[in-house]
């Protein structure tokens, strides 16, 4: 555990909670891609299956349970509780174009050809592109609420901080995981355009418009 890893995890947690609270408080999921949230729920489910097979630390277990719980709670709010506010017409990204190639890639390129390892690899690859339906939705409608931009910022920051964590671990522990690093770089790059707009346009208080 290093400072980048910890702040990355906390940033990830902040993103998840910001989104959950935003939907809960506003009683609306307008502008939120339900498809991205389903993908994240799949990501957490397939990655954290090791909850059943190995114990790493109390921190590790707690965070995994919280992430999974929040992911399903978010999906529930969007598709059940506040379904009437869900903007399905604008959430039109074809997720099969992500899930199918990612599934194929995880079978072809993995550390070990075992079910758990392939599912872990699948989750890493899928996470790197899971935000695309959300970004697509924003580009389609041309705007996002401020709180949604905070969510995206925290979510992008999390993977960027993980990149520094991996650099740290490589230098100080000799540890590296090429699959996680490459996918993490891809994931962070997808947020670059958004980061640029978030910072330069000063969309800290105004609605985000393209």
């Amino acid at each position: 555990m290093n400072v980048f890893r910890l702040t990355g995890d906390l940033s990830h947690l902040a993103a998840i909670i910001i989104l959950l609270l935003k939907i809960w408080k506003s009683r609306s999921c307008a502008g939120i891609s339900g498809k991205s949230q389903i993908l994240f729920a799949i990501v957490f489910t397939t990655r954290y299956l090791d909850l059943l097979t190995s114990f790493i630390s109390l921190y590790n277990t707690c965070m995994k349970v919280i992430y999974i719980g929040c992911a399903y709670a978010t999906v529930y709010l969007i598709y059940a509780k506040f379904r009437a506010t869900y903007d399905g017409n604008h959430d039109s990204f074809r997720v099969e174009f992500l899930v199918v190639p990612v599934g194929g890639l995880s079978v072809l390129i993995n550390h070990d050809f075992s079910p758990l390892e392939i599912l872990w690899t699948f989750s890493i690859y899928l996470e790197s592109v899971a935000i695309l339906p959300q970004l697509f939705m924003i580009s389609k409608t041309g705007e996002a609420e401020t709180i949604t931009t905070h969510y995206l910022f925290c979510l992008g920051l999390y993977r960027a901080l993980y990149l520094f964590n991996w650099i740290w671990r490589f230098y100080f522990e000799g540890f590296f995981d090429m699959i996680a690093i490459v996918a993490g770089v891809v994931q962070t790059v997808l947020y670059c355009d958004f980061f640029y707009l978030y910072v330069t346009k000063g969309w800290f208080s105004r609605p985000y418009r393209l």
Binding site: D50, E117, W120, A180
Partner: peptide, 10 residues
């Protein structure tokens, strides 16, 4: 191949 497990990262 690099050792990725057990996975302590989230």
């Amino acid at each position: 191949e690099d050792d990725a497990k057990p996975k302590d990262e989230l």
